[in-house]
Measured scan of single mutants.
Amino acid sequence: MQRVNMIMAESPGLITICLLGYLLSAECTVFLDHENANKILNRPKRYNSGKLEEFVQGNLERECMEEKCSFEEAREVFENTERTTEFWKQYVDGDQCESNPCLNGGSCKDDINSYECWCPFGFEGKNCELDVTCNIKNGRCEQFCKNSADNKVVCSCTEGYRLAENQKSCEPAVPFPCGRVSVSQTSKLTRAETVFPDVDYVNSTEAETILDNITQSTQSFNDFTRVVGGEDAKPGQFPWQVVLNGKVDAFCGGSIVNEKWIVTAAHCVETGVKITVVAGEHNIEETEHTEQKRNVIRIIPHHNYNAAINKYNHDIALLELDEPLVLNSYVTPICIADKEYTNIFLKFGSGYVSGWGRVFHKGRSALVLQYLRVPLVDRATCLRSTKFTIYNNMFCAGFHEGGRDSCQGDSGGPHVTEVEGTSFLTGIISWGEECAMKGKYGIYTKVSRYVNWIKEKTKLT
């Protein structure tokens, strides 16, 4: 034993070699072989497995989906700052455009905790909710729209109204504003409101030439003092309507412009014939205590009207009353817009006519005020429907199939267009061939041609 100890002390290297040989010859039971080890760690190889990531292109799944990435790591994937920024906006807080917040056709661009709407022409605001041009839906104005110097929408209202708090709607500024039905039992019968379409306001006024200088022999019209197929109006439903009495009662109609003036057809009036105007009328054979009678003290036909040349060209006249009318729910003026808007309103496509005229061709006159909704007829169809001249200051309205029309005794009465609950004068009943005849239409004086003249002559002093 002493000898062994001496050998170990003198030859430590020998001992180490012996131990190493023993270990190498022993069977290893701690580690699995290569094949079995792979069965336990069965993990798919990654895209760049075996390579240094710093030297390969980034992978979106590896960089940002398996674990949260930084902007720089995302930049490695896209290799483009702009594309990385677009991805980053949604990656950080989701897609803010998912709810489609942009209105009126706006395009949404996502941002971090926010979004941006790219608005089409005519709109602005956070969600493109603000109209900035009158060309689109009248700028959301209830009545009139004008573009300011910086191309912003400025709404306005006709006389007797003021802008509401929203700067879009119009509200009454006087007790009985024009064009409004205020009798409670008839307010439910107000005709369907007309909503502004998209309009090209630059070209809204037709490029028409008034044929002022045409000389033409007097034409022989049949029954051209021209509501057939209409309905009984309720008291106060058309408070701007008046009836004219002269040699015979209810020979023509008219509309209240203001307390002192009536507008009617020029062919209705004769110099030297006494005319009485009755406002607030409903049943011409009954006294309903809503009527107001006034005498006409002055007749002003349009300066281009000449019955000797043509009885229905420039067929418009103004009547001055001896005493002002007292405005109330049964006696209310009709609204008159400017030339541009009167023309736009007419193009809405349908209007209402009213009167006490004959209820059928050569038949009896109506006792109760009649009204009828009539569609506008395109000019080409209008011209083809008659052998008589249709001037540019006239328009056609009615039904091709016949059966409904204005008729004798309705002449001078109103053709009105309702705009968001307020009625505007767009025409004056003038003439036609018979009444409600198939293929024939009622012919009306186009008020847009005469609004400046009306307003100039009827100013209240």
Rank of each mutant, 00 (worst) to 15 (best):
K293Q: 10
C97M: 02
Y371L: 13
R449P: 13
G421W: 03
F238C: 04
E418A: 14
E27Q: 12
R191T: 04
N295S: 12
R46K: 10
T290C: 07
L41R: 15
C28Y: 00
V199E: 12
A265L: 02
F345V: 07
P414M: 14
G349L: 06
H415D: 01
L189P: 06
E259A: 07
E433T: 04
N203A: 08
M65V: 11
G125N: 05
E165A: 05
A266I: 01
A164Y: 03
I344T: 06
D212V: 11
L211F: 09
N42T: 11
T386L: 12
E340F: 08
E10R: 02
C128Y: 02
T386M: 14
G179A: 00
P120H: 10
G351R: 01
V359M: 15
T133H: 13
G432L: 03
R140C: 12
V77Y: 10
T84A: 09
S350M: 11
E208G: 02
P239Y: 00
E142Q: 06
L383T: 14
N151D: 10
G21N: 09
V353E: 02
W453V: 01
E259Y: 03
K109L: 04
G412C: 07
F345I: 14
Y312R: 09
T426E: 00
W118M: 11
K45Y: 03
T85W: 04
N304S: 12
Q2F: 11
I443L: 10
I334C: 01
M394I: 14
T458W: 00
V277R: 00
T264Y: 00
Y161T: 01
S255L: 05
P12W: 07
K146E: 11
E35S: 09
N258F: 01
N147G: 12
A436W: 11
I300R: 02
Y352G: 06
K188I: 12
K168F: 13
N147T: 13
H267F: 02
V269C: 09
V451N: 04
N452E: 12
S354W: 04
F176V: 07
I275C: 03
G229N: 06
F399L: 11
H282M: 05
V154K: 11
K168I: 14
G246V: 05
K347V: 03
W88A: 15
N304H: 07
W240D: 00
E159D: 10
R358Y: 07
L327D: 00
L325V: 02
G427R: 00
S220Q: 11
V277C: 03
C157Q: 00
R83V: 10
V195S: 05
R3P: 07
T461I: 06
I15M: 14
P177W: 00
L19H: 00
Q216F: 08
E124I: 10
Q219D: 04
E320R: 01
T218W: 10
G106M: 05
V263N: 00
G432R: 05
V374C: 04
A26P: 00
S430I: 14
T332G: 07
K45H: 11
D212W: 13
G160W: 02
G230I: 13
Q143L: 00
R404A: 07
G272W: 07
V269G: 03
V257Q: 01
E124T: 09
S423L: 13
E73M: 03
K152M: 11
Y201D: 08
S25M: 13
N328R: 01
Q90F: 05
Y450D: 02
N328M: 02
T287H: 04
S70H: 12
Q96D: 10
Q185P: 13
D200M: 03
K274H: 13
G229W: 07
D315N: 11
S329H: 05
D249R: 05
Q57N: 15
I334V: 10
N166G: 03
R449H: 15
G442P: 08
N38L: 07
G403T: 14
G94T: 15
N310Y: 04
E35Y: 07
V359F: 13
N166K: 02
R180D: 01
S350F: 12
L383V: 08
W261E: 00
E76R: 15
S354R: 07
E193M: 08
G439W: 03
E208D: 07
K311S: 08
Y441A: 08
F238Y: 04
N151Q: 06
V202P: 12
N135L: 10
I262V: 10
K274E: 11
K188Y: 11
Y352W: 04
Y161V: 01
Y312C: 06
E73L: 07
D223H: 09
I390H: 13
D131Q: 07
E98R: 13
L327M: 14
W118I: 08
N203T: 06
P44Y: 09
I256W: 00
G105K: 11
E165T: 06
C28M: 01
G105Q: 09
N452D: 14
T190Q: 12
T461G: 05
F221L: 11
E433P: 11
F360D: 14
D150R: 06
H400N: 06
V243Y: 12
V153K: 09
I214F: 04
E418C: 07
V278Y: 04
P197H: 05
P44V: 08
D410Q: 15
S220A: 10
L346E: 12
T386C: 14
K188T: 04
E66H: 06
L376A: 05
E456Y: 08
A380C: 12
S204C: 14
P301L: 12
C141M: 00
V153R: 11
C69A: 08
G94S: 12
G442L: 14
T85R: 05
C102W: 01
N36F: 07
C141Y: 00
N283E: 09
A173C: 04
N310C: 07
Q185D: 14
E66R: 07
K362N: 15
I309T: 06
V331L: 02
M394R: 04
T342N: 04
E66N: 11
A307Y: 07
S354G: 15
C252P: 01
G427S: 00
L327N: 00
I300F: 06
G421L: 03
K51E: 10
F221T: 08
N104E: 08
F123A: 15
S25G: 04
R373K: 08
R191A: 13
G363Y: 09
L325M: 04
L189Q: 05
E124Q: 10
S49M: 08
N295R: 10
L425C: 01
D223C: 11
L19P: 01
V263F: 01
E323I: 06
E171Y: 09
S411L: 12
W240P: 01
L24V: 05
K168C: 06
N138M: 14
I336T: 02
E281P: 09
G122A: 07
R449I: 13
H302C: 02
T85A: 08
H314E: 05
Y352D: 05
T271R: 05
A26R: 00
I136N: 08
E35D: 08
M437S: 05
V30G: 15
Y115K: 15
F221R: 11
V273M: 12
P120S: 08
Y312D: 02
Q57K: 05
Q185V: 07
H34R: 10
E35H: 05
T287I: 11
T215G: 07
L23C: 04
N306C: 05
R373Q: 15
R358S: 12
A266W: 01
D200Q: 06
E231C: 12
E67G: 10
F55I: 06
R162N: 13
D405F: 14
N127D: 05
T445R: 00
R358M: 11
T332D: 01
T276I: 08
W240H: 02
A397I: 02
V331C: 06
F221M: 07
Y352H: 13
E124V: 13
N166V: 01
S99R: 13
V447C: 03
T186P: 13
C155E: 00
C117Q: 02
Y341R: 12
C435G: 08
T81H: 15
Q57R: 10
T287Q: 09
E259I: 06
R75I: 14
E401K: 15
F87L: 06
W261R: 01
R294P: 01
K89I: 06
G160V: 00
C134L: 02
G246E: 04
T458F: 00
V353F: 04
S329G: 11
I7T: 09
